[in-house]
Design a protein around this nucleic acid. Sequence first.
DNA 1: TAAATAGTGTCTTTAAGACATTATCGC
DNA 2: GCGATAATGTCTTAAAGACACTATTTA
Lengths: 237, 237
Amino acid sequence: MSDVTSITAVNSGGYPAPAGLTADPVVFAPRAGELCVLLVPRREPPYEGTWALPGGFMNPQEEPEETAQRKLTEKTGIGSLYLEQLATYGSPRRDPRGWIPSVAYLALTHAAVLRENETEARWFAVDELPALAFDHPRIIADGIDRLRGKLWYSNIAVTLLPERFTLAEARRLYEAISGVRYEVSNFRRTLEQSEIVRSTEEVQQGPTGRPARLYEFVEGSPSWSTRRSRIPGTLRE
Amino acid sequence: MSDVTSITAVNSGGYPAPAGLTADPVVFAPRAGELCVLLVPRREPPYEGTWALPGGFMNPQEEPEETAQRKLTEKTGIGSLYLEQLATYGSPRRDPRGWIPSVAYLALTHAAVLRENETEARWFAVDELPALAFDHPRIIADGIDRLRGKLWYSNIAVTLLPERFTLAEARRLYEAISGVRYEVSNFRRTLEQSEIVRSTEEVQQGPTGRPARLYEFVEGSPSWSTRRSRIPGTLRE
DNA sequence: TAAATAGTGTCTTTAAGACATTATCGC
DNA sequence: GCGATAATGTCTTAAAGACACTATTTA
């Protein structure tokens, strides 16, 4: 980090301004039963040779969410995703180039949307992360917490499943994201009474064993918060 | 808004930079059974004559949370509070002066910490808000949602109570914040099994009626997230 | 029929909602 | 005793955890 160019900015009122603002998408995908996060290699200082979130500088006329989406597409080729604002990281020392806060966004998608032969971006299992740039370890950790915390209070996981899916597929998906294992019977009960999936009449035959019933996603858009929270002992009146 | 001076900034790399960054504390307090938010009058454009959150511009060497705390003290005289990051509002058109994103922070305190004869800041009931500046209506609405959503998953409300308090006092506090009424018996049960309060042997006599048992806060620091969320049907192994 | 996978039944525990009842004070 | 406030008891419902059991396929 010896050859880092520092950047400063001053506004038209003569006061110091941020040298820039960045937006960082934190994109997760389950792959081979493990939760992975999307990273790109850094080819120049600072933090040359490490991996980083696929974010970048905001343009003046952009919403931060638009920047996150644009940078994601530019750096990884991945198209439009549902983004939820995660948090803002604004420590003045987080970027050695200068005062550059970052607004982080959270997304969940399929690992297959990444064309690995057309981009340098790669998926990394969250428990085997490479050396990372900036405060990205912290941002990713916060993203994992938020994703897992909302898993059962949203329908975003189900939207990753194919149009028709079995409960075993759904369970493996939830297990990959949460990092815990679920009991089959209780998993089914909970998912069914969530009313975000519906069972169909069709079944799917595997290589062996009893055929599995197929389920489908109940129409509705992907949302990071479906169920409302519980409140103790409310009076009706 | 005719005489608003617009601000721009350019960084040392020649690229446009934000004209500034602001931090806005959204401070709530229960007062007379109602949830109130802290606002200050705007004495100059833009939005002269309206009310606003007591925030302001960040200095280059500050953490955004420090800015929120500093501006709160400068503009209202209120001392150190526990702040939780709420969200960042970065629409390029949110401030008529230019590109000025804001990081909002959430806090809950006693209405009495405001010395109304030493400051222009005032409490406003959240359902009787005056004309507000910028996108502050949206920020306040998001703050209310977050505060109410976390009420039963944190111990911040209890920290507002005196050292010794009755369950009726606690219940009135929770009702003021949440805007709903609770059934006495169930309220007690829920609060007791939360393990953030403990009953003492003492009682307190009111002007009439049976004396109320006094409770105390179980040591521990104020925290916006105490209880961990439930996960369906996890296997142990 | 064995191995593999899918699905069901049900007992228990915990938390929450509803509401009736009892307790203790001042007057 | 009466009004007021505080506290308790308990029946019911809903959700979740545990775990045994049944069902349907291929080889």
